[in-house]
Amino acid sequence: MARERSREPEAVRITSAASSRNDDIRTRQRRYLISMMLRTVCFIGMILASLAGIHWLWPIFLVGAIVLPYVAVVMANATTSRSDGFDLLDGGPARPQLGPGPGR
């Protein structure tokens, strides 16, 4: 009976390692807070533009105030994936990386 060789876990390179959970949550909260602050600015701008009689501007602020919560939730739920596009090769003896030198 042939024995199956156990696979060793793949090496994680520091450039492609995920950030800590606390850092990820902090980044998501910051993105959400910025989006909600921008939504508040749009809502206040809509009221001020309406009171000032700028009738073409308040609908733009209204659309921003309506659309930004959706954008904020999508951005807050977006995860960051680090990948530099470089795959590590198997370093086993069956796949030498360099051929023999010119004198061999």
Rank of each mutant, 00 (worst) to 15 (best):
V73M: 02
F61H: 00
R30T: 15
A49S: 10
A78L: 05
M37G: 07
H55K: 02
S19C: 07
L88S: 15
I25C: 04
F43G: 05
S20N: 13
A17T: 06
V63C: 09
A78K: 05
G103V: 06
M46A: 07
S16F: 04
D87Q: 15
F61T: 03
D90K: 10
R31Q: 06
A94S: 07
A17E: 10
G101E: 07
R31H: 06
P102K: 06
M37P: 05
R26L: 11
G99E: 10
L33A: 12
A18Y: 05
L68Y: 02
L88N: 10
S6Q: 14
I66L: 08
I34E: 13
W58E: 01
R31C: 00
I14G: 07
M1I: 11
P100N: 14
H55V: 06
G85P: 01
P102F: 05
R13E: 15
L62A: 12
V71M: 04
T80A: 10
T27I: 03
L68N: 00
E8P: 09
D23L: 05
T27V: 09
G64V: 00
G101C: 08
D87G: 14
D84L: 04
R82Q: 08
M36S: 03
P93K: 06
Q29Y: 07
G45S: 03
N77L: 02
F43I: 09
C42T: 02
L88M: 12
Q29D: 12
I47M: 14
R13G: 12
G92E: 08
T15Q: 15
V73L: 11
R7N: 12
L57H: 02
T80I: 13
R104Y: 14
L98C: 07
R5V: 12
R104W: 10
S81G: 11
C42Q: 04
A52V: 04
R39I: 05
A94I: 08
A52C: 04
W58V: 02
A72Y: 00
L62I: 01
Y70L: 14
E8Q: 11
A65E: 01
A49M: 08
I44V: 15
I60V: 15
I34T: 10
P100T: 01
I47Y: 03
S19P: 02
V73G: 05
R21A: 09
Y70F: 14
L38S: 04
R5W: 08
G53H: 04
G92N: 12
V74G: 05
I34G: 04
V12S: 10
P102M: 02
Q29E: 09
L48F: 06
M75L: 10
A17C: 06
G91V: 09
M1C: 15
D23E: 12
S16M: 06
S81F: 13
G99T: 04
I60A: 09
Y70V: 09
V73R: 04
S83N: 15
I54W: 08
R30E: 10
M1P: 10
G45P: 01
P102T: 00
M36C: 08
L57K: 00
E10A: 14
N22P: 03
R39A: 13
L62Q: 02
I25L: 08
E10Y: 06
I34M: 08
I54A: 11
W56N: 06
V41E: 04
L89P: 09
L33N: 08
E10M: 07
M1D: 15
E10D: 14
L89I: 11
L57I: 06
